[in-house]
Design a protein around this nucleic acid. Structure first.
Length: 433
DNA sequence: TCTGGGGTCCTAGGACCC
DNA sequence: TCTGGGGTCCTAGGACCC
C-alpha cells in the first residue's frame, strides 16, 4: 500500500504559523512577481477565488472580503517543508526500510508495504497528529494499493474534512468503486486538460470508474502509450509507479524568471542572464554535478509603443561545452554571449531563463587535452563563494557582469519575514501575544 | 499596467552506422 | 534498372505534475 501525504494549502498554512490572527481568515499567496494566486486557504476557496487567477483580476474581490495577501516567501516554505519531511521520515522509516519519497515541496509518498492492513488507519491518524504537533502544518493523507489510487483517496479526504478528518484508507472493493465513480477523470493524477477533454469528447469517458474498465491496448494507442497503460493498471490497484530513489540527481537545472517590469536593453538582459546562471550553478554544485550544455532563452511580447496584447514569443539557443563544469565563471562565459545573438532591438522583454543540461557527477570528470588542468583551485573558490553567500546574505559576493542596479528584479511587495532562516528576521515574542 | 517557476517522462522522426 | 534490414543516438515537441 502507498500513502500520499499532502500539506493543506501549504503556503497559506506556513504564513499562518506566524500570524495566528489569520487562523480562520481567508489567506492567499501569490506567485513570483506577485503575478497569480497560487495558494488559497479554505476560506479563500469558498469565496470563489480560483487557483492561478492573476492578481489584477481579483484585486477587487480580495479587498472586499478582507483577504490577507502574501508574496511568496520561498525561504520560509522551503524550511517548513524540510521539517515536515523530516517528521514523516522519523515516523515511517526504520532500520531496513527507507519509505518516504519527497514528491514536491508539500507532498510525499510513503511505502507502507510492511504494515498490516488493519494498522493503516491508526498509522495515518497518528502521522497527521504528530506532523501538526511538531510543525504546525495540517496534512491530508490518502492510502490505497497504488499511487494513483492513493491520490484519489487523498483528494476525497481533503474534500470531506468533516467526515474523514483528513485521512482516508481505500482498501475494500466497494469503497474503491464508490470513490472512483465520484471522481471525474480530469481530477486523476496524470490526466491533464488535454487528455480529459479527449476522454470525454471522443470516448464518453467521464469518471475514473469508467476509465478503469478500458482495455490496456486501447490506452496504449490513445492515452500516451505506456503512460496510459500504467494509468489503467494503477486504477485497477496494481502498483506500476515505484517509489523514487531519494539519491537521484536532477537531469536539468533551470533558473528562469519574469522581470519585475519589462526591459529593453541588451545590457540589462545580460545582467539577468548572468545572475540566473550563477543561481543555477549554485544548485548544480549542491548536487555535486557538472553541466555540459547551457541553454538560454528570452521571452518578449511586442515592441515599445504598440498596443498591448498578451502574445509572448520565445527565443532559444544552446551552447555546448567541451568539458562539463560547475564553475560559475565558465558557465557565465557560455551563457552571456548567447544573449546578444538572440537579442532584437526594440522588443519588450518579459522574461529570461538559463537551463543547465547534460549533467554528470563532478567527481567523474575526464581531463581535457585543451582545457586547463582539473582546476581544484577553482572548485575551492566556488565552495568559498557558496559558503559566504549561504551564511551571510544571498549574493553578497557576485560576478560583476550580474550587475549592481538590477532594475529587472522581481516584485515581492507583500512578503512576510524569513522567520526560520535569517537571524535578523527571527520571530519576536512580546508581551502582547 | 499587471498573467509563476521548475521539473519529468515519453514518442516520433531524422541522422547515421553496418 | 533494381535500391534492405536492423539498430542506436539525438532532438524537438507534447503531455503531465505541483
Amino acid at each position: 500500500m502507498y500513502a500520499i501525504v499532502d500539506c493543506n494549502s501549504f503556503y497559506c498554512s506556513c504564513e499562518r504559523l506566524f500570524r495566528p490572527d489569520l487562523q480562520s481568515q481567508p489567506v492567499v499567496v501569490l506567485s513570483n512577481n506577485d503575478g497569480c494566486i497560487i495558494s488559497r486557504s479554505d476560506e479563500a476557496k469558498r469565496l470563489g477565488i480560483d487557483m492561478g487567477t492573476p492578481l489584477f483580476e481579483s484585486r477587487r474581490r480580495l479587498a472586499d472580503n478582507r483577504v490577507a495577501v502574501f508574496s511568496s516567501n520561498y525561504n520560509l516554505y522551503g524550511n517548513m517543508s524540510l521539517r515536515v519531511m523530516d517528521t514523516l521520515r522519523t515516523l515511517s522509516d526504520d532500520a531496513e526500510h527507507r519509505c518516504v519519497e519527497v514528491y514536491s515541496v508539500d507532498e510525499a509518498f510513503i511505502n507502507l508495504a510492511h504494515l498490516p492492513i488493519d494498522r493503516l488507519q491508526g498509522f495515518a491518524e497518528r502521522l497527521r497528529e504528530v506532523v501538526v504537533q511538531w510543525t504546525g502544518i495540517p496534512v491530508s493523507i490518502g492510502i490505497a494499493h497504488s499511487k494513483v489510487l492513493s491520490k484519489v483517496a487523498n483528494r476525497i479526504a481533503k474534500k470531506n474534512k468533516q467526515q474523514t478528518c483528513c485521512v482516508l484508507v481505500l482498501h475494500d472493493e466497494a469503497a474503491i468503486q464508490h470513490a472512483l465513480e465520484s471522481t471525474d477523470v480530469s481530477d486523476l493524477w496524470g490526466i491533464g486538460r488535454r487528455y480529459a477533454r479527449k476522454l470525454k469528447e471522443c470516448y464518453g469517458i467521464n469518471t475514473a470508474w469508467q476509465l478503469r474498465h478500458m482495455p490496456q491496448e486501447w490506452a496504449r494507442k490513445k492515452l500516451g502509450g505506456i503512460v496510459g497503460v500504467r494509468m489503467i493498471r494503477e486504477l485497477n490497484g496494481e502498483p506500476c509507479i515505484p517509489l523514487k530513489d531519494p539519491l537521484e540527481k536532477k537531469k536539468m537545472i533551470a533558473t528562469t524568471r519574469m522581470f519585475g517590469k519589462p526591459i529593453f536593453t541588451l545590457h540589462e538582459l545580460e545582467e539577468a542572464v548572468a545572475t540566473y546562471t550563477a543561481r543555477a550553478a549554485e544548485k548544480l554544485r549542491r548536487q555535486y554535478g557538472a553541466a555540459a550544455s547551457v541553454d538560454v532563452f528570452l521571452v518578449y511580447n511586442g515592441v515599445a509603443g504598440q498596443p498591448y496584447a498578451y502574445d509572448p514569443k520565445h527565443l532559444y539557443s544552446r551552447a555546448t561545452l567541451l568539458q562539463p563544469t560547475s564553475d560559475t565563471a565558465a558557465l557565465i562565459k557560455a551563457a552571456v554571449p548567447q544573449v546578444s545573438t538572440l537579442y532584437r532591438k526594440g522588443a519588450k522583454y518579459l522574461k529570461a531563463g538559463v537551463v543547465l543540461g547534460d549533467i554528470v557527477p563532478d567527481d567523474a570528470l575526464q581531463g581535457n587535452l585543451f582545457g586547463s588542468s582539473a582546476g581544484s583551485d577553482r572548485r575551492a573558490l566556488m565552495q568559498a563563494l557558496d559558503n559566504i553567500n549561504f551564511s551571510m546574505r544571498d549574493d553578497i559576493v557576485k560576478f560583476a557582469v550580474s550587475g549592481l542596479t538590477r532594475n529587472w528584479k522581481m516584485r515581492q511587495e507583500m512578503r512576510s519575514k524569513r522567520f526560520t532562516t535569517r537571524w535578523d528576521e527571527l520571530y519576536e515574542v512580546n508581551g502582547n501575544l
